[in-house]
Simulated assay, not measured.
Amino acid sequence: MPPGVEDPADTVAALTRAVPGVAGLHPGMFGEVATYLPGRRVSGVRFTDSGLEVHIVVWADAPVRRTAALVRESVAAAVPGAPIDVTVEDIATRDQPAGAVDAG
Score class of each variant (00 low, 15 high):
61 D>R: 02
50 S>K: 09
52 L>Q: 06
83 P>L: 08
61 D>C: 02
90 D>P: 01
47 F>V: 08
51 G>N: 08
89 E>H: 15
40 R>Q: 15
63 P>F: 08
61 D>Q: 03
52 L>F: 14
29 M>F: 14
89 E>R: 15
56 I>C: 02
76 A>R: 15
79 V>K: 01
29 M>D: 09
36 Y>C: 09
54 V>P: 00
67 T>M: 05
74 S>M: 04
33 V>A: 14
65 R>P: 00
50 S>C: 09
88 V>L: 04
60 A>H: 09
37 L>F: 13
55 H>Q: 14
32 E>A: 10
90 D>I: 07
26 H>L: 08
70 L>M: 02
74 S>E: 04
28 G>I: 05
51 G>W: 09
83 P>C: 11
82 A>N: 10
59 W>D: 05
74 S>C: 02
50 S>Q: 14
86 V>R: 03
63 P>N: 07
50 S>W: 15
53 E>A: 12
58 V>N: 01
28 G>S: 11
70 L>D: 12
92 A>N: 11
77 A>P: 05
29 M>K: 11
51 G>M: 15
29 M>R: 15
42 V>R: 14
56 I>V: 11
53 E>W: 06
40 R>F: 08
26 H>W: 04
76 A>I: 05
36 Y>Q: 08
82 A>W: 13
42 V>Y: 07
66 R>D: 05
72 R>T: 01
48 T>D: 08
38 P>A: 09
48 T>M: 05
64 V>T: 11
33 V>I: 15
72 R>Q: 14
89 E>Y: 06
38 P>C: 10
59 W>V: 00
33 V>Q: 08
36 Y>K: 13
89 E>A: 13
43 S>H: 04
41 R>F: 11
34 A>I: 09
36 Y>D: 13
27 P>W: 11
34 A>L: 15
85 D>H: 15
28 G>E: 05
25 L>G: 00
25 L>R: 04
63 P>G: 01
26 H>V: 03
75 V>G: 00
39 G>R: 11
48 T>P: 04
62 A>T: 03
46 R>S: 08
38 P>D: 07
27 P>G: 02
51 G>A: 11
52 L>V: 09
87 T>F: 15
48 T>A: 12
59 W>I: 00
86 V>E: 00
79 V>N: 05
63 P>S: 01
33 V>N: 06
66 R>H: 02
77 A>K: 12
58 V>R: 06
35 T>W: 02
31 G>K: 03
45 V>Q: 08
46 R>Q: 13
88 V>W: 14
76 A>G: 13
71 V>T: 00
55 H>Y: 06
50 S>G: 11
